[in-house]
Design a protein around this nucleic acid. Sequence first.
RNA 1: GCGAGAGUGGUGGAAUGGUAGACACGCUAGAUUUAGGAUCUAGUGCCUCACGGCGUGCGGGUUCAAAUCCCGCCUCUCGCACCA
Length: 810
Amino acid sequence: MSETKQRRTYDPTDLEHRWQERWAESGLYKTDEDENKPKHYALTMLPYPSGDLHVGHWYPMTPSDTRARFMRMNGFRVFFPIGFDAFGLPAENAAIGRGIPPRDWTYSNIERMRGQLRQMGAMFDFDSEVVTCDPEYYRWNQWFFLKFFERGLAYRMEAPVDWCPKDNTTLAREQVVGPDKRCERCGTPVIKKNLPQWLFKITDYAEELLDFSKIDWPERVETLQRNWIGRSEGAEIRFEIEGYGPVEVFTTRPDTLFGATFFVMSPEHPAIEAITTPEQSEEVRAYVERAAKMSEIDRTDVTREKTGVFTGAYAINPANGEEIPVYIADYVLMGYGTGAIMAVPAHDERDFEFAKKYGIEIRTVIAPPDWNGEDLDEAYAGEGTMVNSNECDGTPSTEGKEKVTAWLEERGAGKATVTYRLHDWLISRQRFWGTPIPIIFCDECGIVPVPEEDLPVLLPEDTEFMPTGESPLKLDPGFYNTECPRCGGPATRETDTMDTFMDSSWYWYRYLSPHYDRGPFDPERGEKWLPVDQYTGGIEHAILHLLYARFFTKVMRDLGLVDFDEPMTRLRNQGNILGPDGQKMSKSRGNVVNPQEYVDRFGSDALRCFLMFIGPWNEGGPWDGKGIEGVSRWLRRALSLVTGGVSSGGEADPSELPRRTNRLVKKITDDLGAFRFNTAIAALMEHTNYLLAVRGREEWHEALRTFVTVLSPFAPHHAEEMWAAMGEDYSVHEQAWPGYEEALIQASEITLIVQVNGKLRDRIEAPADISEETAKELALSSARVRPHLEGKELRKSIYVPGRLVNLVVG
RNA sequence: GCGAGAGUGGUGGAAUGGUAGACACGCUAGAUUUAGGAUCUAGUGCCUCACGGCGUGCGGGUUCAAAUCCCGCCUCUCGCACCA
């Protein structure tokens, strides 16, 4: 066969289509339910149906598939489902901008993406697909909401939300864009506005969420979650404000209490109006107003000079009875602690800056080591010895924390407490394309949950969208007018829908039984498959999605739905695949790489393998499509091992065949276990080159079988084609993963490295079991080595068995 | 500012105390009696005709031996950022 002809015969697209059809016909990827095998639930994050799969989807999914296949070949029954995270803003924007109903837009995108997913050649079990905007799915979102509500985990309160004054609507977090926080649609800077909102009490689980002992997750994700939860131990201290009453502060440094020379409240603090004296009220009101108008970005700009105003009020320091002035200042945030602080300028950088500016006393109460009694040039936040603190003088500050807290507790002026940065999860969205919150407002009965049997509360079908983006549910009497389930009187429905993170907080449970109608999932199926053994997805979900997922599972445990504490035993993150410009891939930047053109030209195996080959999977990196040609060449060469056509004149030792085959199996086994896809592919390439060079030997056919078997998780179509061409029984994907013998991997011959003073001087071929003595003799007698020893004394020699001799001379 | 990670050929990367640059891309030369965005062969870190020397961000250290371990610095990326 001529080379030209061979090139024409290599048509990866045709080959892949053939096998995809065969796989579908034969049900090859139907989930194996054989309970004699250990289970493996492999989960990859479900995509948002934006319209087309891009390489940002291929990058996490195909290596996850490779690993799922590997587990299957290792004797596990593997469940590897896929679905669509189908609620969300883009669908609504399509409706507003182009008049396409969100449902139509979403389902047509899903239809297209289903085909693209199949093209990937992954072993997804498409029978268990879940689409989160199906009433069949979101009904259970509503059910969960009701369960949360019953347990007091869902509650309604006034909460500040991002509000676009032009569109006259609130915005979801992800709709607020840019460093200066503007509305995604119209570019208007957003403001904060108080609205009644539904929240989930995730803070009840803050402490438990800090415990990662039951899961094997990347250190980085744990750290991010830990920081996000932001646990701080300290004390709540009660300061009496003259003529008003007690106001509490939170501090992590009760030991500095004697140094509190002023008191600061956030401009949003509810007590401000009551404590402000008439003389100061004008100034205070102006400051509060200015703070309210200020954009979030200005407000939280760390480099801005501290500002504040005196309220005219004084607070009494419970430690020493001193009167200290009460200020309001925007560097104190209402959203953390109690919204008020005791200011200790000597030992807090921010308080120091403020005190300097307003001429407030800076009293050192923690002596730094080697302190000479002079005033501090800057705040000292470290530990030291307590001074100027009455009976506490001389106490180390580390002990002082407890001592002061205990003292306060005795007098009812404070207590030890723990504060979290984590806030309750605000789930209300003033949006259409989401799960309706199953709540009814009745003038007589108040807030009434929709009875379980009335679920789901369906989204209306024919809806008109306002160009302003305001949720049509608010303007749809057919939707919101209803009867009170309790008293039967006229009532209105909640028109807010749920945050889409709700959908992704439990979807892997639904995969188990997507049409089950007696609960969110069939407990028998859960028994068989839960929890998820291996989750894969992007690091960008380290906090929100993955924290909510853990929270949900803990609540589900408390509801008796599951009997474990963590949703996913093991998590691994891929890095981000960036655009060719090194920037994050996004439609607006125009740097999105469409996998289709690569699939059409090189086939999906080539794209899969290329994505695994470009570098460590957890690092990601910019896309450079050129290299895919090398991978494509390799696959063609691999295929030619069976079909012929590619010749190789390279020289290789055929007797190495068993050793190299064993070594390959070990390498691929180890690499796949550790998510090192890039080095696994490199080893497969190397082995292909070797097999080509020694083609046709006695043991060759058996070695080829092994090679094709270990190739199959990476390039499933090509491996299947080769398997069939070798006359083996369908399918290679049902073969057992080959084992290897450690003993066979050892080479009989080694290259002995000879160094002189650590520098490489010669390489000598020697038997692997060479003795130290012989090795040294060989080294000393080497012609390349001798010149470097001349006139010098051999002081020492190091022998590393099977590797090297280092001669130390001087 | 705080926290985490990373710096290796022209490029992606490999090597986690013992042969630096595996495997690829690209490039150079040759073969395929036409062509080449095909294929095959050989070469390809830098300097040097060669012997050899130099070389993993920079500076120091530990060691017989350092990309790898330790100390200091620089640069980049990603989080968080007035959290009391």
